[in-house]
Every structure is written in C-alpha cells, then in structure tokens.
C-alpha cells in the first residue's frame, strides 16, 4: 500500500539575526504555523498561497531539505528530514524556473544519467523511458540538444526526467511558467493523465489558476503559515464565491431582466452573459426569469473562474488580518 503524506502540527520558525553596529538583535519569523494535513496516495493537490505564505517552506520540509522547528511529518512512511536520501528515490520534482536537464546535451543523455542516479534496472528504465517519450511526444527531439528545444518541449522533457524512476510523489513548482496556451494545456493534460494512470501523488504549487483547475482535485490555500482553505477544487469554488455565470442565447431580442444580485457582464442582441449572486437570488429563480424573457436557444450555468475565487480568499484573509 502506497502511503501518502501525513503532517501533524508542523511548525517552522526562521531565526533572523540583525547587526546594528556591534549590537546583535535576534528575531523569529513563523513561516509555517502548526499545519495539519493528510494527503492520501494518488491524490493531486494544489498548494497555493501568496508569496511568503509558507508553501515552499512546507514543500522543503516534506522533501527533507528543511528541518522543522516542531511537529511531525510522514511522507510515504519516511520522516523526510531524517530519511532524505531514502525518500529521494520515491520523489520526483519539476521546478519551472530551474532545469535539471544538461543544457548542451540531448534529453536522452540526462535520462541515461538519471537511470544511474536512481539505480534503475535497465529493462525497467527502457520501458518507462519509451512509454514517457511516446506519451509526452518527445521522440522527434530526443537527439536535439536541450538548448535548441522550445520552452514547451523542454518542460515536457523536464517532466519526463522527473518521472523516469516512477516516483510515488511528484512535486511541481510552477511547471507551466512561461509556456504558451497550447503547451500549457498539453502539459496539464499529461500530468493529470499520469496522476490518474500511475497513481502518482501530485503536489502542485502554482500562481496559475488554470494549472490548479486542470491538474488538482484538491486545493489547499496557505497564508501566514496556516491552512486557510482546504477542500475539493469545485467545492472551494462554490463555497467561496457564491455566484454563478449564466450564459444565454436567444432566438430573438429578449426583454430586459432587473433582479437583485444579477449583474450583466456582456450583452448583445441575441446573447446575454450575467453574473448571479446566489446568496441574494437563487440561480433557479434567475433561470426562470430568463426563460420568461424570450425564446431561449441555449443556456449554460458556469462556475466563475478560479482566479476570482483565489483573489477573494486572499483578500478575505487580508481583511481578517486588518480588522
């Protein structure tokens, strides 16, 4: 049984020493403040939060690079800061801003090196490598030095490099940064597919709501070292926004609707897009009014974009802080 991640009262304080002339002052910054989390094996989790929220510190403790001030963590049954080298065999990582590929060599050379570093059995390595090359469509670039690859091709190669040893946990830090829309979508699909098919637990940190929406099934929002929100992506969106987007197409020009909590976002002769504050007027009531307003050709009720949810959570957190 592949165990996931268990965190109990994990705390990390950083000691800051300042010198003013010959006088030394020591202060403490609480980066992670008693976090409790359980992530079952195979789950894909987005760990998000504003800069300085404590995401990276948490990830570094989970990979054994940082030792906590107090608390406990178990990753795949290992205590990360005690068993860092052992844990490393089961962990993969992709850092969007830091390459693990050898810049002047084709990706295949890095893959060969990683096979030795992770002590992979040759037949296993070849099987996984070929599968990944095929799935991530790297075949045409396998003989091209990394420096000549496009960013999208390079990032696909980065992800392949981090999956060669079939890690049980994959840490992704801004994996789509700098990619164009298509390359971004491709990479998200591939990560999600690998998560589903191989059962790899995915920890994603990203400022891109699209990454979270497409890759993660659960979102954990961290701020000031605390878990502020933890839930399924859809549930979080519903809970924290309390609004719906209603997109309606009419056969003819509809009558105007004026209801409390309904804001028009765009309006043309045959199409109307509106935001409904469901805490004021239920979406069913608005839908009924729309059907009365004209002959409806098509109607769609959508959740608002995750960016808005995240922005609202962050701003709510700031409001709490200032009050």
């Amino acid at each position: 049984m592949n165990r996931g991640v268990e965190i109990r009262a994990l705390t990390k304080n950083f000691v800051l020493t300042r010198w003013s002339g010959f006088r030394r002052s020591v202060s403490e910054i609480v980066a992670v403040d008693g976090i409790n989390l359980d992530v079952p094996a195979g789950q894909s989790v987005a760990l998000i939060g504003p800069n300085g929220a404590g995401k990276s510190t948490t990830i570094k403790m989970l990979t054994g690079i940082l030792h906590p001030t107090s608390g406990e963590a178990s990753v795949l049954g290992f205590i990360p800061w005690r068993d860092r080298r052992k844990l490393a065999y089961s962990v993969g990582a992709v850092f969007g801003l830091r390459s693990q590929l050898w810049y002047h060599l084709p990706p295949g050379d890095t893959f060969e090196l990683l096979a030795r570093i992770y002590n992979l059995r040759r037949p296993d390595f070849i099987q996984t490598r070929d599968l990944l090359i095929d799935r991530f469509n790297l075949g045409p670039f396998m003989q091209t030095p990394v420096r000549k690859l496009s960013l999208g091709q390079r990032m696909r190669a980065e992800v392949v490099a981090s999956l060669l040893h079939r890690p049980k946990i994959l840490f992704l830090d801004e994996p789509t940064i700098g990619l164009d829309v298509i390359a971004r979508q491709e990479l998200r699909d591939l990560i999600r597919e690998w998560n589903h098919n191989d059962g790899t637990t995915v920890f994603l940190t990203s400022h891109d709501a699209g990454d979270i929406e497409h890759v993660a099934e659960r979102v954990i929002v961290v701020n000031h070292g605390h878990v502020v929100v933890d839930g399924a992506v859809d549930a979080v969106r519903r809970k924290y926004l309390g609004s719906k987007i209603l997109r309606v197409q009419f056969h003819g020009t509809p009558a105007r609707i004026a209801m409390a909590g309904v804001t028009s976002l765009s309006h043309s002769e045959y199409e109307w897009k509106m935001q409904v504050d469901t805490t004021i007027t239920p979406v069913g009531q608005v839908t009924a009014a729309v059907l009365d307003a004209g002959s409806v050709a098509d109607i769609a009720i959508e959740d608002p974009p995750l960016e808005e949810v995240i922005a609202r959570i962050y701003s709510g957190d700031r409001r709490e802080e200032s009050s």
């Binding site: 570094k60 990979t63 054994g64 690079i65 860092r84 080298r85 052992k86 490393a88 065999y89 962990v91 990582a93 850092f95 830091r98 693990q100 570093i117 992770y118 840490f171």
Partner: peptide, 9 residues
C-alpha cells in the same frame, strides 16, 4: 538551486 539538488539521492 541547492535545494533542488538535495532532492536527488
């Protein structure tokens, strides 16, 4: 980058 390197065995 040191942190990235320490993730490897």
């Amino acid at each position: 980058r040191l942190a990235v390197q320490l993730i490897r065995p």
